Each structure stands twice: as C-alpha cells, then as structure tokens.
Amino acid sequence: MRRVFFLVPGTIDRYRCGGLSVALHTARLVNRLLPTDLVTYRTRQDDYLFLDDLLQQEPAPGETLWVVSWGFEVPKLLRRLRGRHVIYHAHSSGYGFDLPSGVPVFAVSRNTLGYWADRAPRNPLFLVPNALEPHWLERGARLGVAVAEAGDRSIDVLVQERKSSRYVLGQLVPALRKLGLKVVVQSGWVEDLVALFNASKVYIYDSAEYWRSNGLSEGFGLPPLEAMACGCVVFSSFNHALADTLEPSVVGHQIGCGSLAWDVRRICESVREPSAWRPTQERLNQLLSEHTETALMSRWRSALAAIETMPSDEVPLRRSPTFLLRFNRKVGRILRFLRRLISRC
C-alpha cells in the first residue's frame, strides 16, 4: 500500500490561508484511503515530518506519492522531488510555470483544469473539487435545515474584507449603511464562522480585482458556497473557479455590474425577502452534494486508482512547444502561398 505525503511550508499562523486549510482537510480525507501524512518543508515543527529528513531516508523513486500545491514554490519542490512519484494538487492558476511530462494534475476546479489542459495537455488530468467541511453542512441554517428567515437574522449584509474590492468597501458598504442596513465587514479571525453566516441575510464576495491585481486566479472559491450552505443570499463576482458553482441569477447574483444604484436596490430587496433570491432547495442540495467529503473521497479514490495503472517504465508523452507550433503554422502559410503563386504562373 502506497504512502501519501502532502507538502506544506508549515502550519503556523504565518501560513494560514485557504490553501493551507484545503491541504489539511484533503490530507485528512485521503488518509481514509491510503496512509497519509502532512510534511512541512520551510518550518520544522515537532508535530509533523520534515521534507529534508524524508528525502535522505528514502532514495528515489521510492513508493511514496508526494503531493505539492503551494503556488510559486511548486517548481522548486518538483526539482527537489525529481525522479519520485509526484502529484500536483492544482489550486489557483496563473503562476506561469510548466510541469514536467508525466506529472498528474489534480485540479480543484474546472477553471484550473482548463488552464492545465491548455498548458500541459499531455499530463494526466483529474478533477477533484474541494469539499466543504462537515460543520457547514451540519449546522448551516439553509432551506430544509431549520432555515432562519429574515426576521431571525441580525445582520443584513456580511462582507469579508480580505479579497474584497475597493468598490464594495468604499462605495457599496457606505451606501447600504446610509439606508439603515446593518452591514458587518469581517476582518479578523472569527472563532465560529458558521454562526456568523447563519446570522446574515446577504453575503457579498467580490474577488475579481484582488486576483487580477495578483495575476492569479480564484482557485476554488468556497466562501460563497459556505454562505449558501448557511441560507445566505449570495452576491458575488463570477471570476475563475466561482463560475464552477455560481450561475448568475439562479444560484448567485452578480455584484458590481450596471450601477451602484442597481446593486443597492437588488440587495435591499433581497434583505426584505431572502427566500425570493435564494436558489431552489433542489438546486442547492444538488450543488452541496457535489462538495461533500464523500464526493471528494470518491474522486480521489478514482484518480489515485487511475495513476496506479499508468506504466512507470515508459517515456511519457510531451506537449509540442508553442514556438514550434506557431513556426509550423507560419511555414504552412508560406507553402500554401507559394503553391497558389506557382499555380498562377
């Protein structure tokens, strides 16, 4: 039975982010399928294995499956793990690096899958969407689960400051407050996010500017899904992986389009009558079922089984270099032009 190592720089506060949460959660689930450990490579921590030690203990190629995911550090990690069995657990896209031939890509969204299907079309590709942690599904006050209606929710509009746009924070929030709505801008650590979302009628998430300014993508966009699991009406941007789950005017509603007045009017209407703005119970249940731990484990089980059947002693296919494809296309155009010219003579 193979062993799986999930690589993260560390788990201390300086590394806390959505990517770390996903790595920790996924590692716990994969551990139900294969023996799995978390491995740090920047900060040595007493509770976890350390990459340098492991590389000395097991010569390449070894039997271990190494899972890398940490954005800009992936190329460096791949070089250190050369000759070993490596999986790229692809979150965001846009980092600009290429993958060695044969390295499987486990993409967490269709947006990321499409990116690598273009950039590494000969690498094995799999779709493994992230799962919601159980407390969102077990305690979320949504349709059919002790839904809290408008009068029971003390917060009219909830905005999380991190990744939010200047438009939302600088224009929309003041406009909504001016009309008397209770708007909470959450900016620090919250001990119980489920309770905060359960207490909110409308949730606003506008990350397009944030990711565009960083030159990267919204890798998996769980916050709007978490909000819907708690019965919130969601107004959001639809960039990158958010388009995997949010269908405009059906599941979520676009924010920051048209005009400020139109946003204000729609949000006020949704605060007054949330049930008219939520997705149907059937649609929401279908969406949430696709992001359960059971669904994630099923996809990982299938993907792991597939890569086990791939021969390790054969040369993997390589993609054609872009410059060569374009050169061949130009040569083809020149040859066609010359043929037409000759045929006229």
Rank of each mutant, 00 (worst) to 15 (best):
P124G: 09
G332H: 05
Y167T: 00
N123F: 10
M228A: 05
S289A: 15
K178M: 04
N123L: 09
R212T: 03
Y95S: 05
L78R: 13
G114R: 15
L158Q: 09
L296M: 15
K201Y: 11
C230V: 13
W66K: 05
A241S: 15
G19V: 12
P274E: 07
V159P: 03
S343A: 08
L324K: 06
R340Q: 12
A141R: 15
F220R: 03
S101M: 04
S343I: 02
I334P: 00
D46A: 10
L125W: 05
P321C: 08
Q286L: 14
Y210H: 14
F126W: 12
Y88D: 01
E138G: 02
R14N: 02
R3N: 10
L20H: 09
G188K: 10
E58L: 03
N130Q: 13
A227G: 05
Y115W: 14
R42D: 08
T26R: 09
V8S: 09
E58Y: 08
P104L: 12
A303E: 01
R82C: 04
R84M: 06
Y15A: 07
S259F: 11
L172V: 02
D152A: 15
V8Q: 11
A120D: 12
P104A: 12
A120Y: 13
G10P: 11
R340I: 09
L296D: 04
L137W: 07
N130T: 13
R142K: 08
P124K: 06
P224D: 03
F72C: 00
